[in-house]
Computed example of a mutant assay.
Amino acid sequence: MNRITTLLILALLVFSCSDSKGNNDTNEKLNALRVELDSLKKSKAEASNASNKQIATFLTFQENNAEEAMNFYVGLFENSRIIDVQRYGKDGPAKEGTIMVATFELNGSKFMCSDSYIKHEWAFTPGVSNMVECKTNDEIEMLFTKLSENGKALMPLDNYGWSTKFAFIEDQFGVSWQLNLK
């Protein structure tokens, strides 16, 4: 916030000290300051928005494939990115380089994942799934194709009465997805 205030004061000083003829150099500097200020405002808003998200889906992978799954999902959905990755070191309890915890966004929704070094008696279940509201037919077709590849369609893409186009998929990592055409 201090940097934004400083930039605003600097912009006001530059603007007020410029001659009335509209010095090109001064205008260019002022425009550059406006661009930087807009960028800082956007960064601040994104950081504030991200910190307000208290609930995230957490995916525990047991086959050391958390990174592969995360990269697959981030590449599949628009407006998605990897935020942070923390890995096990050589002295850790898990295989070196595997994911201790990673944070990523899928179309603005926060997800976290890890590679569990403990083999649990449980796995992913279709009883908990990710619901994706698709905006276009092309989007639902693409997601269905990619998510069902090496996975299985629990409910194939079809009209089930409550939706003109719907599918329920378990992907190659065992994670379940419901796709619905809005």
Rank of each mutant, 00 (worst) to 15 (best):
I55A: 07
Q54Y: 05
N24R: 15
L30N: 08
N24P: 01
A56Q: 04
K41F: 01
A56G: 07
E36M: 08
T57C: 04
T26C: 13
D38T: 02
D38F: 01
Q54N: 12
K41A: 02
E36N: 11
A47L: 07
E36K: 08
K53W: 00
A50G: 03
L37A: 04
L33T: 05
L40Q: 04
L40Y: 01
A45V: 10
F58Q: 10
S43A: 10
K42W: 01
S39I: 01
A47P: 03
G22P: 13
N49F: 06
K53V: 07
K42S: 06
S39E: 09
S43D: 11
V35Y: 05
Q54M: 07
S39K: 07
N24C: 11
N31A: 11
A47F: 12
N52L: 04
K42G: 03
K44L: 04
Q54G: 09
V35H: 03
S43L: 11
D38H: 03
T57W: 00
L33Y: 06
S48D: 05
T57Q: 09
L37G: 03
A47Q: 14
A50T: 09
N27D: 15
A47V: 09
G22Y: 13
R34M: 10
R34S: 12
N27L: 15
N49V: 08
L33A: 11
D38I: 01
T57D: 00
N23V: 14
N31C: 05
N23R: 14
K44Y: 12
K29W: 10
L40T: 02
N52S: 05
S51K: 10
L33Q: 06
K44W: 08
G22Q: 14
A50P: 01
N23M: 13
S51A: 11
N24F: 14
S39R: 08
